[in-house]
Design a protein around this nucleic acid. Structure first.
Lengths: 229, 229
DNA sequence: ACTAAGCGAGAGCACTGCTCTCGTTGTTGC
DNA sequence: GCAACAACGAGAGCAGTGCTCTCGCTTAGT
């Protein structure tokens, strides 16, 4: 007697296979995933897919969740691999990890950070995994502050901004000064823009040496934050 | 005798009406524009649209071109309205103009800066209008440098980065130091990320005071660039 | 052993982009 | 002024989509 029945195991395997096939289609055909094509790939008829996913959007949601997790893993692993006190090294490692993952999985990145699908509303399950990359980035600042290797800039924030950031800090980074959080978020925002520009084809051929450009751009944000060289 | 024949005039009006109807649909139904729905709105049958646009993608391209122009106009007008020597004021005015336009035309913004449609390749006509916002931003730096109100940072760029930026500067901003161009592009990248995050629903309810947050974030990039307060 | 649930196939609905044909209507050359 | 021609709108049709419903078959639980 197996705790998960045979049927349940087969079902789990089917779900995985469907997701795998869907991911394959996503990579080749782009964002507009065809449920029927996925079904064809598995030698099934389209209606059979509905035994496993109530709708196409639910399939997409499953893929999005997995993609968030994959990106989160990549980013956190890169952060953990770098020497803990080398703040700038960690910043670059995390940035590069995010970019590398995006370049390796462009369609999934577009799913996460591209224009939202009209009818589609991301469920709450996505909130936490979506926070992992920015939390990892700002975590570097938190560590630097604790080590004394990083000082909080003493710029004065407008009160509403300070209050909003204080709320975020309270729930995610207790004790982190709002001014530092603000700069960290600026860095995360620029990182996202940098990757999106490169991936979505703006910038085009204007910058042949993309790797070096990317590192320099993220380095500029490290400067803004005050990460020691 | 009218230089443009009646037929030609009617045709031009029809094209405009189709684009207007399409824009209306874009605003309500989101990115997946239905040619048939547009045709229905005009009391036509879908095949009649093909007399004016060879395909749905060509209709989208026309909308994209107009959107780029609208955004470019908004941005350049904002820049021209601010006092020429008030570099920081211009920076904020341009940033806000871009954001305001995006918030007022979210679907069109998504068309321009969202994930690219799989089969769709942006024609070369879009390159120039697409450059207008970043060119406007960096133009502020160019003016500041000419006025002596802004100094080029003397950070040393890796040679490949310097070379790539030098090429861009040569064609768009002759004489602009590469280091300044790099920081300007960082600002543009962050601005795009900022608007996209807000528009595409990340950040969600985390930041209630969006206007103030936006201004502060763009102000941080102005700091990085060195725009005088 | 019997019942109930899970499953895959198939038909069908409403929708999509796009093509082709067929009359009609406006434009232009003679 | 009229004939030839091009532009036009309607309609039918094709291949594709997401999704629903029904029908048998297989497996699981009692």
């Amino acid at each position: 007697m197996s705790a998960p029945s045979i049927r349940a195991r087969v079902r789990a395997e089917m779900i995985d296979e469907i997701k795998a096939a869907a991911r394959r289609h996503l990579a080749t055909d782009g964002a507009n995933l065809s449920l029927r094509a996925v079904a064809r790939d598995m030698g099934m008829v389209s209606s059979a897919i509905y035994r496993y996913f109530p709708s196409r959007d639910d399939l997409l949601t499953a893929l999005i969740l997995e993609a968030y997790d994959a990106l989160g893993d990549a980013v956190e692993t890169a952060d953990a691999t770098a020497a803990r006190h080398d703040l700038r090294g960690r910043w670059h490692a995390v940035s590069r990890a995010a970019r590398d993952w995006a370049l390796a999985h462009p369609a999934e990145y577009a799913l996460l950070y591209g224009s939202p699908v009209p009818g589609y509303a991301a469920p709450d399950d996505t909130i936490l995994p979506a926070q992992r990359p920015p939390v990892t980035l700002v975590g570097i600042l938190r560590d630097g502050l604790a080590d004394g290797r990083l000082a909080a800039p003493d710029d004065e924030l407008p009160e509403p901004v300070r209050a909003d950031l204080a709320e975020i800090a309270a729930s995610l980074f207790p004790g982190l000064p709002e001014s530092l959080l603000a700069r960290g978020m600026a860095g995360w925002t620029q990182l996202f823009g940098l990757i999106s520009f490169e991936l979505f084809g703006r910038v085009a051929g204007a910058i042949p040496h993309r790797d070096a450009y990317f590192d320099h751009q993220t380095g500029l944000m490290a400067d803004l934050i005050g990460l020691p060289r």
